[in-house]
Design a binder for these strands. Structure first.
Lengths: 163, 163
DNA sequence: AGTAATCCCGACAGATTCGGTCGGAATTCG
DNA sequence: CGAATTCCGACCGAATCTGTCGGGATTACT
């Protein structure tokens, strides 16, 4: 049971964009360097994030990517659904609209087994729904201009002084 | 994010063994037929379950497999750990003793990202720790001999009358 | 003893996904 | 125009998934 590096890299990408939020578009090359990740691979990931409306792209020179809205309005479940597909520990327990997949469940013991996957799915979904990108962005880089953003540490995040 | 069919098939296998608990060893062929799964593939899975001490094998004619202890003493987290490996949504967030893998976490934003995977891992672990195989065995087949086992429906399981 | 049933076990293999790479076209800024 | 950057499709090696195959070892029954 594990997520792929798509999820890992994609989340790290989003965190970087979160730190840069309010500073206009950032180039992929910049982020790839900061996170030490292969830029061509990030391209694939960021394009799906763009298609999902989580980031906005600006083409041409001085272009790049930026969050489509503030980090605290981006639930992590949305990010991971884009990167990893629907939260579905098993086909018969997807969390997206394609619930019409039920005809596959005609096994004898399937109904109760299904119950297990649904429990797991709900546990993950609930956890993810309670987190936003802001929970993962520890230090916001100062914006170029504009009001100073108050560093609001969510109650769900442990005190950084302990780390 | 998904489990493989190893987990699916293995759990179904365990459920079948749960239904047959108290009736001596059951052959894999029998279970493969009941669940309509490829027997040679089940062999692989059941052997790891045996190595983990969850099932006991009896060789020779009239041999087969049976649970090593009652279904309600088999936590589902143990089953899935055997079948799918440690509950680790990401390398840096495993739930097993190999926590010495931390040196890989030296990235800038990694610490906070790690927090996400740990949250997910804990959500899954907690859910799985609260379930035993008995929660997935709806109808216990009557044992050949011995006292009648009371059908104890755990509070966590929804009323079957609703299904 | 012989035979049938069954587990045991290792090797193989096709399909799919993972984790990228490469090259170039399109767009925009200076 | 030229440099920076996104956009996009094609390709690719390696690993994993999902099995299959063949035979050996062990036991029960007759």
């Amino acid at each position: 049971m594990s997520f792929s590096t798509k999820g890992e890299y994609g989340v790290r990408l989003m965190v970087q964009l979160g730190r840069r939020y309010g500073r206009g578009p950032s180039s992929l090359a910049e982020i790839a360097t900061d996170e030490d990740l292969p830029r061509p691979y990030l391209e694939q990931l960021v394009m799906s994030l763009r298609d999902a409306g989580l980031v906005i792209s600006t083409r041409g020179s001085h272009g790049g990517y930026e969050l489509s809205r503030p980090p605290d309005e981006i639930p992590m479940i949305a990010v991971l659904r884009v990167l990893e597909g629907p939260i579905a520990p098993m086909i018969c327990a997807t969390d997206e609209s394609a619930s019409a997949h039920e005809p596959t469940c005609d096994r004898t013991a399937r109904c109760t087994v299904n119950f297990l996957w649904i429990r797991i799915r709900d546990a993950i979904s609930t956890t993810l729904e309670g987190m936003t990108l802001a929970d993962l962005v520890p230090e916001r880089l100062a914006p170029i201009a504009g009001p100073i953003l108050v560093e609001r540490r969510p109650a769900s995040l442990p005190d950084p002084a302990l780390a």
